[in-house]
Design a protein around this nucleic acid. Structure first.
Lengths: 183, 183, 183, 183
DNA sequence: AATGAATGAGTCTTCATTCAT
DNA sequence: CATGAATGAAGACTCATTCAT
């Protein structure tokens, strides 16, 4: 991906929103951190902070999709893939800083009245779950089992991320497979 | 609980923070909604918004504690209690509005750099988990099983709440027991 | 009238809007000239610039009403009163600076889409005309003649003010009675 | 007149300035409405908004000159010509939208400190008055009567336009001849 | 001749907080 | 205890203009 002005804004916004949420980050901070001058933002994102947030959410959606595919792509069983996924997310959590939350929730839950945000959140979550269902079926689960497993994984992932953030400890993510498979 | 000025502020703050997060709500809005005059806030909460947020979080912590006790108090088995709990939370979710999140996370995650907030979040979550462990043991689970079950319940509760909010559907909370007991 | 913060804002706004129009004056300028700090404005005018403009228009409306009453109050005939009025307005024009326009038009025409502004402009103009009609009748004109005369005076006043502004010469206002009575 | 990029800018600017004034219209809006790309403006108008405003004022000056000539050209008396003129202006007012003001005032009064604008306004007004004087003399008025009549017409035209705008009713323009000839 | 990206000073507005009464 | 005025830093956003291509 090219290091364009637009992308610098998206990357910086994604990182900062993930830590402090949509309302916790000012445009000035995004501009300062990214080194982009104020006037440029509205050239690339005519609707301002809202547009930027949507773009940032789109970016992290893509990243997450890639991570899920990588985790399950190498796996020989669903359990294997899920375990790899949580380990990857734990590493990501360490990399992004221990205050980081699920980026999509943290960005798009910021404006509860914004219908675009609302719709996008639910679409993204649906996409992740569907993607996991796909992997589960490919790895031998029945359709019913795959649906239940994917939903369980998603819910545990979101809740575990919250707990990891509260305790500032990526281990909370690493041990989630126990809950799914040894519970 | 008496309808004092202080309590009106706490209730209003808790409600609004739950929907829009710590940074999504201004003091002006809290004042307007609660009908409390501007100057009064700093009498009751000398440290301002931070104090108020801590008080609001304390209030919802107490509410949640009460709900957990009620759910498990009437129960004849852990599974029973957990199921009742999720149904109570689904009702609460409907009552508070479909944009509402776990109030404690939403209030106290707002300021990731604030050590008081960080500490309080983790303490509150620990308290809930410990409380559920207690009920589980009382209802016949072994200590180890109780600890695992409580952690699982908490994680699924947080993640399920996120999903319910994204889909704006309290059913996502009601069907969480399936994940815990039929997975 | 007391020299309160609110009044300082109104007086300054009225003066500046009269010269440069609603859109030609920034709040910063009004704040600097009046010596009022930024945060105070929204305490007194919760809807900001719009509220302030309405208040300023109300203030000049009152001033104009007073001037009209003074001009005709001393008069022994309609022609006399009208002539005095134009001389008073010429003095006002010199006092306010030769770039000054009819303050009400200049303030309230600034936002053509604003229904409040639109309505208020037409009400104020109607009020002035009605006031002049009253004086004309009191000074012996028949109702029909009074209505026509008041309308003529108003129209000539507005147009003459425009010409005075273009030529930067208060004489254009002083010689308007010729047009009305010797045309 | 050819539909060049330059002319599209002038027409759009004239229309928008007439409604909202020089300071009420941003370059972006002019560009969007006219469909002209951003970079092109400074090719045709090196001094930017100022140049464009002067050009727009020049354009409407020409249009008004044409209208005056047409109105009086067909006329058999001064009164006749004036009456036609006001009817033509009423139609123009309806065509341009009921928020429209005298275009020249509205454009060039926007920057009271700008000497070019100031000078141009006064020149344009002088030219209109002189043009009407010419027609009046041609139609049989004495030089003195012609000068007075032209001035009266101009003043009543400006004031009437203001009243028409306030009341959003072109009838205010149509009935101006009464004021001039039956007053 | 034409263009889209870049730019930073400027716009109006909201913020949490302090103060005098 | 209670309150409305005061405050200036910060908020998101728009502006007219310049520049490299």
């Amino acid at each position: 991906m090219e290091r364009s002005t637009k992308n610098k804004l998206i990357w910086t916004a994604a990182k900062l929103f993930q830590e402090k949420g949509f309302n916790g980050v000012g445009l000035n901070e995004i501009l300062t951190v990214s080194g982009v001058p104020k006037g440029s933002l509205y050239h690339h994102f005519p609707n301002g902070k809202t547009d930027l947030a949507l773009a940032a959410a789109g970016f992290v959606h893509g990243e997450m999709t890639r991570i899920i595919d990588e985790a399950f792509g190498e796996a020989t069983s669903y359990r294997d893939g899920a375990t790899t996924l949580f380990h990857k997310l734990a590493k990501l959590f360490e990399l992004m800083g221990k205050h980081s939350a699920c980026p999509v929730s943290h960005i798009l839950f910021g404006e509860p009245e914004n219908a675009d945000f609302q719709k996008r959140t639910s679409e993204v979550f649906d996409a992740w779950i569907a993607q996991i269902v796909g992997h589960a079926e490919r790895l031998g689960e029945t359709p019913d089992a795959a649906r239940a497993a994917a939903r369980h994984l998603f819910v545990v992932l979101q809740g575990g991320w919250t707990l990891a953030r509260a305790r500032q400890d990526s281990y909370e993510l690493r041990r989630l497979p126990e809950l799914l498979f040894d519970g």
